[in-house]
Design a protein around this nucleic acid. Sequence first.
DNA 1: TCTGGGGTCCTAGGACCC
DNA 2: TCTGGGGTCCTAGGACCC
Length: 420
Amino acid sequence: MFALVDCNSFYASCEKIFRPDLRNKPIVVLSNNDGCVIARSAEAKKMGIKMAQPWYQIKSQYLSNGGIVFSSNYEFYADISNRVMNTLTELCPEIDIYSIDEAFLDLRSFKRNIDLVRFSYDCRKRIKKWVGVPVSIGIAPTRTLSKLANKVAKDDKRFEGVAVFERKEITNYLLKKTDIADVWGIGRKLSKRLKEIGINNAFELSKLNPRLAGNNFSVVLEKTIRELRGEPCINLNNINEPKKQIVVSRSFGRGVTSKDILHEAVSFHANRAAEKLRHEKQKCRLITIFIRSNRFSNRVKQIYASKHINLIHPTSDSRIIVKSANQILNMIYREGYEYSKAGVLLSDFVNNFGYQMSLFNRAKDTASSERLMKTVDQIKLKEIAKIGFGNLGFRNTWKMKRQMKSKRYTTNINEIPFVK
DNA sequence: TCTGGGGTCCTAGGACCC
DNA sequence: TCTGGGGTCCTAGGACCC
């Protein structure tokens, strides 16, 4: 059996932890740039606020109805997430952290006669008490089914946050009530194609021949079908697997036409990407840059430009990464367009230890680069000074809006909560 | 005026090899 | 006029996820 533990309205629940005055208030949390809604408390959902809805469309009505809004505060959410995951790890060491707010527990090593419902309620209670966020738990023979069980636990009040799919009849009954678009792994395209051939709910999907479906669609669908039938075949097991790519990208606060400002943004993202890369203890061989116009706008001429370069030898040196990023920008920039987003993507990683050096790469240079980068990272970490490479600029015209951010209650000593 | 950001995995097709 | 067959590796792009 597998359990999926998922925090309810995670970001919104985080915002409530240190604000008891918000207990029963509608709360939404916005994406970067205060662009659209990415989390809603139960009260906000009741008001009809939709996921990913653009903020400007609902702002005035939502606020006049007493709604509360926050810009996203990832430093805070990441810290709360760690606390949730640490608590879970104590309860079940076989854990796959799947995203910031959910984790799979592999219960196959548990004793056979353990009361899973009881275990789940204990889990829930402990996380609520120790960390302060509510979670829902779904348990089933496969990960895909545990996802569905979790959804039932969340949506159907009778389950009180815990659903265990054990009996076949109950599972089938619920599968029949589940639209295929709600099945993990079935997205927009697949659900459209499946509905065209008359497959509408999860039960019908589970009755398809897995191998045939695999040949006609993809192995992903084949695995999903097998999982719906109770045969575990999706393995995560990526607990300590290193990342394969690092992306840093942002939309600008407003449209940008100036090449200079694009250079600032690209330098800024490249700096950040290099930091993340060093934090992962990896080096990259491939740097990709992209710039694009606002794809929602029919006012501006559309453009998407991207290009990558291979490095002669792997690096995590900010100077090289920033310089290469700006070289690419020079190659892809075209005048006469209004850009709304830029991004830096690092990939093709090698481990810091034991990789092939190029013929012309001198060990001495590598050592001095690593010392310099280490120093830079320390200066930043200890907030001794602001430091970075390339033309980072002072204008900040492209930086994002984030006007309603809460405090870093748990990670900054100057912002800890006060009790008066 | 204002529509997120960061990931993974799979596949088709090209390049290349014998 | 007639121009093989089978394999690997790599990459860009699509689909999906939260």
